[in-house]
């Protein structure tokens, strides 16, 4: 009987503390919302080639290439949101940020961490993508294009995530905040990335040509450039008082 009472006491305490840190809950809630939106967008975003009919569209949305393309980006986003935040959070939690601020220029700090994050993300993506494709039994129509899309996409994604991580490291409740903060900013990247991936996998592009995805690559490229430039310009304001 007392065991139940004791477990009940812990349960009650959990509810009370969770209520008092409602902010953390809203971050997690936004994270869930961001995930749902990403899934919806990646399944909705249509290739730039037109469909012949509504039935045609409905059918095509469910083909394995389309599903693979969408799932891959959902996977990449969650991997990034989980793995790329540690770099700044650790500095803040361990207190090593102080020594770094005294020794290094802000831009060098960001660039170094960004490069490390990009490498990490690329390695994870280039390992996970083939496995996912194998699971779904999809063969890319144009492997080179696929690698290009993933590469340029990862470069932009890592930039935004690295920068947002610096902001999140200042907050007290960090769970889910990185995903919630970065997702709205990443929508252009996801739309172009999913589209380009679908084209590379052969969706609406059985011949595996590069041209259907050229616009996507352009968007991804310009996004990456804008993200990196903005990060370099703004990082000092958040890193130093």
């Amino acid at each position: 009987m007392s065991w139940t009472a004791e477990a009940g006491a812990v349960f009650a305490k959990e509810l009370r503390t969770e209520w008092r840190t409602r902010v953390a809950l809203s971050a997690v809630g936004l994270f869930a919302l961001a995930s749902l939106t990403l899934i919806a967008l990646s399944f909705r975003g249509a290739p730039l080639t037109s469909f012949r009919s509504d039935a045609d569209r409905a059918l095509q949305l469910l083909t394995r290439e389309a599903v693979a393309g969408s799932l891959l980006w959902v996977l990449i986003f969650f991997t990034a949101a989980t793995g790329l935040g540690r770099t700044f959070v650790q500095e803040a939690e361990r207190g090593t940020a102080l020594a770094l601020r005294l020794s290094a220029r802000a831009t060098t700090v960001w660039t170094g961490k960004y490069a490390a994050n990009t490498l990490l993300l690329l390695v994870l993506t280039l390992i996970a993508a083939p496995i996912l494709l194998a699971i779904l039994e999809v063969r890319p129509a144009n492997a080179g294009l696929l690698v290009c899309v993933l590469l340029i996409g990862a470069v932009g994604l890592a930039a935004v995530m690295t920068f947002t991580a610096a902001l999140v490291a200042q907050a007290s409740a960090k769970s889910g905040l990185l995903a919630a903060l970065s997702f709205p900013l990443l929508v252009p990247l996801f739309l172009a990335g999913v589209n380009g991936t679908k084209a590379a996998l052969g969706f609406g592009n059985e011949a595996g040509r590069w041209t259907p995805a050229l616009a996507d690559l352009q968007v991804l490229g310009s996004y990456a450039v804008i993200a990196v430039t903005a990060s370099l310009l703004l990082f000092d304001f958040v890193w130093n008082d």
């Binding site: 207190g95 090593t96 102080l98 020594a99 601020r101 005294l102 020794s103 220029r105 130093n240």
Partner: peptide, 18 residues
């Protein structure tokens, strides 16, 4: 401020190293 950060040698209890 940036110049001062580089110019001083600073040690404090909350200065953690890796």
């Amino acid at each position: 401020a940036a110049g001062r950060r580089q110019a001083v040698g600073y040690a404090a209890p909350d200065l953690a190293l890796y």
